[in-house]
């Protein structure tokens, strides 16, 4: 491969295969929001500090604002739009709604992606695991308790009581 300004990339996003050309210094966040028009993923700070742009790449939560679009090559990406199951909100999303873990909602897609990665990795997280998993996600509204509670609820509903 030679250095190029326009980089061809092919990856899977929410189960759909896409291929397109991206600029060398374009971020993954820009491609997701402005090229693929998946606006669920938010841009807050743009420098890795707020977590609003969190996506799941090959099972791991990362900040889309810090990832180059060119680095999406060959990866399996999930954004908040991919959580929906057969036109219905997922258990995790329902728990967020029912437990009042959403107020203005700006942090919610990022919170959901961080907790989705956590639950895949650790189906029965303790409170410390949850706090650690969302420590890179800022929320100006809820005070976090409801978010932690919603993740605990979702874990319980999906995988049963903590062993």
């Amino acid at each position: 491969m030679e250095p190029c300004r326009q980089v061809p990339v092919a990856f899977t996003i929410n189960g759909r295969a896409v291929s397109l050309e991206v600029a060398a210094d374009e971020t993954a966040l820009h491609v997701i929001r402005d090229r693929l028009l998946l606006k669920g993923t938010k841009e807050g700070c743009g420098i890795g500090e707020c977590g609003a742009c969190t996506i799941v790449v090959d099972g791991k939560a990362v900040n889309a604002c810090l990832m180059l679009a060119a680095q999406l090559q060959g990866r399996n990406i999930m954004t908040v739009e991919g959580l929906i199951e057969k036109h219905e909100l997922s258990v995790l999303q329902k728990a967020f709604l029912e437990d009042h873990a959403v107020q203005c909602g700006f942090c919610t897609p990022g919170m959901l992606m961080s907790s989705c990665a956590l639950l895949k990795d650790k189906p029965r997280p303790d409170k410390g695991d949850i706090v650690d998993a969302i420590s890179g996600n800022l929320c100006r509204c809820t005070g976090y308790q409801q978010v932690v509670g919603a993740i605990q609820d979702a874990a319980r509903r999906l995988f049963g009581e903590k062993a």
Partner: peptide, 9 residues
């Protein structure tokens, strides 16, 4: 270090 997301990258 950083946050979960930062540590993953």
């Amino acid at each position: 270090f950083g946050s979960r997301q930062i540590r993953n990258m």
